[in-house]
């Protein structure tokens, strides 16, 4: 079987690239961290990879708004290569800041015909501050290849701007009916709720979105921070080693490429 090759995009202020690279390798991919300048210099540099990950961090300090400056850079220099990457049936994953970037470029929710990028955004948490806490996530869609339908996962969030907002109710209804909602924040029993179950006040408890193809996923929580049992906040209380929930997302991605490429 050919190697599954993943690229982890670096840029000024990106800071979760090393652990994301490690998670991809654990899942069986060959991963490489590449600075965005290299992609801008050589627009074909993406071609050798099948998985593109935009990791967490504070790209360009989150100046103006989270992910905005990097999104602007991508829109003006890399939009076509990334569009081509998606059109070729490859996978894109945006985590935290990477999710913010994907939304602010319009890659997510990703229906260009309706200009979705003006209808969905990610903004300041209702709490008004950065928070690091663990959340339960319930999958909402069957179309996203990163997700195992029906399996709740437990991951940490760490952000100040993670509240998903839609311009109006019809937009929200459309996101739901077309299967764009990838994950919702729920409690341990799978029920939606207020803060801190929904840590940022996202509409409809949305924690992650997928595009029309189901091959692009963006989410605020950090799957790369739960790839070993000892990263679980209560591992020392558990009789049995907990499953490393974050790995499901990376493993599904690698498996998809192995089966389809």
């Amino acid at each position: 079987m050919a190697d599954v090759k993943a690229i982890v995009l670096r840029a000024a202020g990106i800071n979760c690239d090393m652990e994301t690279e490690y998670a991809l390798e654990l899942a069986g991919a060959k991963a490489k961290r590449v600075h965005i300048n290299r992609l801008i210099e050589d627009k074909t540099a993406l071609d050798e990879f099948q998985i593109l990950v935009l990791p967490g961090g504070f790209s360009y300090g989150d100046d103006v708004a989270a992910g905005k400056i990097l999104a602007n850079q991508i829109v003006h220099h890399l939009f076509e290569p990334i569009q081509k990457f998606i059109d070729e049936g490859k996978l894109v994953l945006g985590i935290c800041n990477g999710f913010q970037v994907l939304v602010k470029t319009g890659v997510l929710p990703g229906d260009n015909s309706t200009k979705r990028q003006e209808e969905v955004t990610i903004t300041y948490n209702d709490s008004g501050k950065f928070e690091d806490r663990w959340v339960h996530l319930a999958p909402q869609t069957k179309k996203c290849i990163f997700i195992k339908p029906g399996r709740k996962i437990y991951l940490p969030v760490a952000h100040a701007e993670g509240k998903v907002v839609t311009r109006d109710t019809p937009t929200l209804e459309k996101l739901k009916s077309e299967g764009h909602v990838a994950f919702k924040y729920v409690d341990e029993n799978g029920k939606e709720g207020n803060y801190p179950i929904n840590p940022n006040g996202s509409v409809d408890s949305i924690a992650g979105l997928t595009d029309t193809t189901g091959r692009v996923l963006g989410l605020m929580p950090h799957p790369e921070r739960f790839v070993r049992p000892t990263q679980h906040p209560r591992w020392s209380r558990l009789r049995q080693k907990p499953d490393s929930d974050g790995m499901t997302i990376f493993k599904n991605a690698v498996k998809y490429i192995q089966e389809n490429f």
Partner: peptide, 20 residues
């Protein structure tokens, strides 16, 4: 308000217990 888990090396976190 502090990210205590970035870099993925957290083993014993500053907050612990049944409700973290």
């Amino acid at each position: 308000q502090y990210d205590h888990e970035v870099q993925g090396g957290s083993v014993v976190k500053p907050l612990t217990g049944v409700n973290n």
